[in-house]
Amino acid sequence: MDNLQVYLIIAALLFSLGLFAVITRRNAIAVLMGVELILNAANLNLIAFARFGGMNITGHIFALFVIVLAAAEVAVALAIILNIYQNFNSINVDEAQQLKQ
């Protein structure tokens, strides 16, 4: 646990799984969950580097901004998804091909 590589490997796994969800999931909310996994992987990397780079708090600030952006992103994305649901009655990303009906 006092080893940088362990954290990097966990983050790499999370990133890969998140990308897998983004590629394969049909449901837009499941795709969003994949994006959240990717952002968490990036945050884990940032904080691990902060810890093993001489406890540099700047990494924490960067991760904090990532969390803020994730919150804003999820709010707007869910609003868009709700709109798509009202228009198409489904939120499968491979079915929503038009911007307007």
Partner: peptide
């Protein structure tokens, strides 16, 4: 928020 999204859609 995600759970709300699932429930609403």
């Amino acid at each position: 928020l995600l759970l709300f999204g699932i429930m609403l859609t």
